[in-house]
Simulated assay, not measured.
Amino acid sequence: MAYVYDVHCHIQQSPESFDVLDSSAPGVLYCPQGTNYMDWASVAELKDRFPDKIVPAFGLHPWFIEQVVSGEIPGSWATELKDLITRHNGTLGECGLDKAARNPATNKQYPFEPQLALLKQQLTLAHELDVPASLHCVKAYPELYSIIKSGTQALPPRIMLHSYSGSPDMLSQMFFKDELAQRMYVSFSAAINGRNLDKTRACIKAVPLDKLLVESDLDDARHTVEALDTVICLVADTHGMSVADTKVMLARNSQAFLGK
């Protein structure tokens, strides 16, 4: 039986669901993503509690850029991030760019220029630590591409676009072209990508088979198995593969991405 990797989730946010990890789906490995500095400890605690089922990730999400700029998130965050990733054998995530989301308190979009600086700093850190990165990107794919194709930005060994929301053409014309293609992975979730199945099928087809990943992107472990099954079946159906063979392929891809 192939393991199923949930390469991007937030189950650290729902401690009431942790009993599921004790009792169900022994073949599922979870990659919970720290996002906001305040939840990094929860991700680390989850790894300590379930060392055989958790590959932790720590990062600063663009939705928290204002706390970085204001100093609410302390200036020592980069040092702490490096220490957590190293100490817990983790990866970088979730970080990235977002030109659509708004601060619910002000109804204003999150400032974009500081997002760029924050992402570049975290990509450099992942490069130094030689760990992969899980990236959030909404309506900012050209800007993301500009960063990772600049030739001046230090990059992680592997980069995953999580719950990919761009077009199929962007994948083939930008991210899976030339030398960048060796570094890139793309993940899909039922929660996000299930909203437009025709587009998602086209995107799945645009990703090389050995660079496909799946995730739940959920914060409650009680619902992850069903969510993963849904997206795995979508990948299998799109490529005319059996579910069993698809699980083997995805497990192999996940191991290659994580380097574990």
Rank of each mutant, 00 (worst) to 15 (best):
Y3P: 00
D6R: 01
D6T: 02
V7N: 08
H8N: 11
C9I: 06
Q12Y: 10
Q13D: 13
Q13W: 08
P15I: 13
F18C: 00
D19K: 10
D19A: 11
D19M: 04
V20R: 05
V20N: 03
L21N: 01
Y30I: 03
Y30C: 04
Y30D: 00
Q33G: 10
N36A: 12
D39E: 08
W40Q: 04
L46R: 07
L46Y: 07
K47Q: 14
D52G: 11
P56E: 10
G59E: 10
L60S: 03
F64W: 15
I65A: 07
Q67I: 05
Q67M: 14
S70F: 12
I73M: 11
S76W: 04
K82E: 15
D83H: 13
R87S: 15
T91K: 06
T91R: 02
T91H: 09
G96M: 03
A101R: 05
N103S: 12
P104E: 08
P104L: 07
P114A: 11
Q121E: 14
Q121Y: 01
T124M: 09
E128P: 06
A133Q: 03
S134W: 00
S134V: 15
H136S: 09
C137V: 10
A140N: 09
Y141A: 05
E143G: 02
L144W: 04
S146M: 03
K149V: 01
K149P: 00
K149L: 00
S150T: 08
G151L: 12
A154T: 06
A154L: 14
P156N: 09
P156Y: 06
P156W: 07
R158D: 01
H162S: 09
Y164D: 02
G166W: 01
G166I: 04
G166K: 00
S167D: 08
S167W: 07
P168Y: 12
L171N: 04
Q173R: 14
M174W: 14
F175L: 08
F176H: 06
K177A: 14
D178H: 10
R183N: 06
V186T: 15
S189Q: 07
S189D: 06
A190L: 05
A191G: 03
I192C: 06
I192V: 15
I192Y: 08
N193G: 08
G194W: 10
N196M: 05
T200Q: 04
R201C: 13
R201N: 13
I204Q: 04
D217N: 10
L218H: 03
L218I: 09
D219E: 13
A221Y: 05
H223E: 14
A227G: 03
D229R: 15
C233F: 02
V235I: 13
V235G: 03
M241A: 10
V243P: 02
A244P: 00
K247G: 03
M249P: 02
N253Q: 11
A256I: 06
F257I: 05
